[in-house]
Deep mutational scan, measured.
Amino acid sequence: TVKFKYKGEEKQVDISKIKKVWRVGKMISFTYDEGGGKTGRGAVSEKDAPKELLQ
């Protein structure tokens, strides 16, 4: 599970739902399947990112 803040809201998403991951400076950005055909997005700092996300 990845915990992150998006627009001031605390969120979390299961690693299995993450589609795409990329690095922006010291942040790790990602998109994930929100269900219902929607794609969500989020970002975590490199130090807070789970190891599975960095692979």
Results as ranks from 00 to 15, higher is better:
T31A: 06
I28G: 00
V21G: 02
S45Q: 12
G25K: 05
M27D: 04
G37H: 04
A43R: 14
M27A: 05
K19M: 14
M27F: 14
Q55L: 14
K7T: 02
V44A: 02
E10V: 14
S29N: 15
K20H: 13
T31M: 11
M27V: 10
E46F: 15
Q55K: 14
K3V: 13
S29W: 15
G42A: 07
M27G: 03
L53V: 04
K51S: 12
E52V: 11
M27S: 06
G36I: 07
R41H: 13
A43C: 14
S45E: 15
K47E: 14
K38S: 09
I28F: 05
S45P: 14
A49K: 01
K7G: 08
S45D: 14
T39N: 06
D14A: 13
V24R: 10
A43P: 00
R41M: 13
K51M: 14
T1N: 08
T1M: 14
I28R: 01
I15A: 04
K5G: 04
F30W: 01
K5M: 14
V2P: 01
L53S: 01
K3G: 03
K5P: 04
Q55A: 14
G37L: 04
D48Q: 10
M27Y: 15
R23S: 04
K11H: 09
G37N: 07
V13H: 01
S45M: 14
G8I: 02
I15S: 03
V24K: 10
L54K: 08
S45W: 14
L54H: 05
A43N: 11
V2H: 01
Y6A: 06
Y6T: 07
I15N: 02
E10P: 08
K38A: 08
F4Q: 01
G42Y: 05
R41I: 13
K47G: 10
G40F: 07
T39L: 14
M27K: 07
T39A: 06
K47W: 10
Y6S: 08
D33K: 04
R41K: 09
K5R: 13
G36Q: 11
A49E: 01
K7E: 07
V44D: 00
V2Q: 01
A49R: 01
Y32D: 00
V44E: 00
K20Q: 11
W22M: 05
G8A: 04
G37Y: 04
W22T: 05
V13F: 03
G40E: 06
E34V: 10
T39M: 15
G40N: 06
D14W: 08
R23K: 11
V24D: 11
K11R: 14
L53Y: 02
F4T: 02
L54S: 06
G36N: 15
K11E: 02
K11L: 09
K5A: 07
G40M: 10
G36P: 08
K20E: 11
T1C: 10
G40P: 02
R23T: 05
I15V: 09
L54M: 07
G25C: 06
V21A: 10
G42E: 01
S16W: 11
S29C: 15
V2C: 03
F30I: 02
P50H: 04
D33R: 04
T39G: 04
I28V: 07
K11G: 03
Y32E: 00
E9Q: 14
K3M: 08
G37V: 03
S16L: 10
T39R: 08
Y6V: 12
G42M: 03
G25V: 02
K26M: 11
A49F: 13
R41W: 15
I28A: 01
W22E: 03
F30Y: 01
I18Y: 00
V2M: 08
Y6F: 11
E46V: 15
T1W: 13
K47L: 12
A49Y: 04
I15R: 03
R23F: 08
S16Y: 09
K19E: 07
T1P: 06
E10H: 11
Y6I: 10
K19W: 11
Q55D: 13
K19G: 05
F4M: 02
K26H: 13
R41V: 13
D14R: 08
V24A: 10
G42C: 03
G37D: 05
G36D: 14
A49Q: 02
F30T: 00
K26D: 14
Q12T: 15
K7P: 01
K17V: 08
W22K: 04
V24Y: 12
I15C: 06
P50C: 04
D14K: 08
K20N: 09
A43M: 15
K11N: 04
K3Q: 08
K26N: 14
V44H: 01
G40Q: 07
E52M: 10
L53D: 00
D48H: 12
Q12I: 15
R23V: 08
R23Q: 07
F30E: 00
S16K: 10
D48F: 12
G25Q: 03
